[in-house]
Simulated assay, not measured.
Amino acid sequence: MNDLTTLLPLHTNFNQGIKQQLINAHDLWLFLEIKTRFNDWITRNIKEYGFKQGKDLFYSNLSKKDLAQNQETRGRKQKNYLLTISTAKELTMTASNQQGKLARRYFIQCEERLAEIAPEIIKEYRSQWQIDRNAVKTPFKRLCNALERNKERLGKTTEKHHYTNESNMITSIVLGMSVQHWKQAHSINGDIRDTLNAEQLAKLEYLEQADLVLLDMNINNFHHRKEKLAEMLATNFTETTS
């Protein structure tokens, strides 16, 4: 813990009078040993996960010391990205190496300490996550009903594995890999949906509603539906959540 505190020091910020502990994104990038250029990595993740300034991360100007140490910033004005602990923990999910696992454990410990000194912040964060999580459950129930209607029209019985296959197919589109590989890469046990962030849950809800429509349109081929859903997410999701 002490070693990680040195490598990933916590920075204090006051947001609307509330004390926050933040992580420098560049420190996290170095610790995770990301091969992608820092600016490309942080910009891509902000867009992909929908992180918001003033909520998930904060901007400040780089110090002269930082500018001198960071080769990428020379000759250009650069932002200093400061991440909330929960945001930093989400970014560690993109790293499947040992460094990512160490960082996740560290941030969990930081959140536990934060819960002791500022329980109202943790309560609000967990409450919002539960709202996002519950919002996904209803569309999935409707999707299950649509799957049953589809099987009935085909003269078939809906088996347990049909629900599982449909759920895993949709989740894999959101994750960009199979559910099994994602669990192995991130050491996840239990329901994978309980580990998804708000952005991923929103995409999941969108795809479940879209899949319901495809099933009711009698698009019966599993792989055809998967291709259509991936295309719909890529072309429509950004617009629907902007």
Rank of each mutant, 00 (worst) to 15 (best):
K47L: 09
E148D: 10
E116V: 15
W29T: 03
L32D: 01
R74Y: 10
R44M: 04
L30I: 06
T94Y: 05
I46H: 04
K79D: 10
W29A: 05
K151M: 15
E120H: 12
K55A: 14
W41S: 03
T94K: 03
L28I: 02
H161C: 07
Q69G: 15
N168Q: 01
R149W: 14
I121A: 09
T94Q: 04
F51D: 00
E120Q: 15
G155K: 06
V136C: 09
L32M: 01
M169N: 02
K89V: 09
Q78Y: 10
R133V: 01
R133G: 02
K89L: 08
A135Q: 15
K101S: 09
G50N: 04
A146F: 00
M169V: 03
A118D: 13
E120G: 10
R76S: 10
K123Y: 12
L28C: 04
K137Q: 14
V136T: 15
E112C: 14
K156F: 15
R44W: 00
W29P: 03
T164I: 12
R126E: 12
Q99S: 11
L91C: 01
E111G: 08
S127I: 07
A95M: 05
D132N: 15
C110H: 09
N45V: 00
E166N: 03
I85Y: 05
D132S: 15
E159H: 08
L32K: 03
S63Q: 07
K160P: 07
M93Q: 07
L83G: 01
K89M: 10
I117F: 13
R126S: 13
H26L: 12
F51S: 00
N168E: 02
S63E: 08
Y125T: 09
E152C: 07
Q98V: 05
K79T: 06
I122E: 09
C110P: 05
S60I: 12
Y125K: 12
K77F: 13
Q71L: 13
R104S: 13
Y49V: 04
K101P: 00
W41V: 03
Q99W: 08
L62V: 11
F51I: 01
E90G: 03
A68D: 13
R133N: 14
Q69T: 13
M93P: 02
I122A: 11
I170H: 03
K123V: 11
K55H: 11
N61C: 11
A135K: 14
E148G: 08
A88L: 01
Q78D: 07
G75F: 10
E90A: 08
K89F: 07
T43I: 00
D27E: 11
I170Y: 00
R37W: 02
K35T: 06
D27P: 04
K151G: 04
L32S: 00
K151Y: 09
L82D: 01
Y106W: 07
T157R: 13
R44G: 06
G54I: 05
R153W: 06
C144G: 09
L154N: 07
Y81I: 06
E111I: 15
L147N: 02
H161A: 05
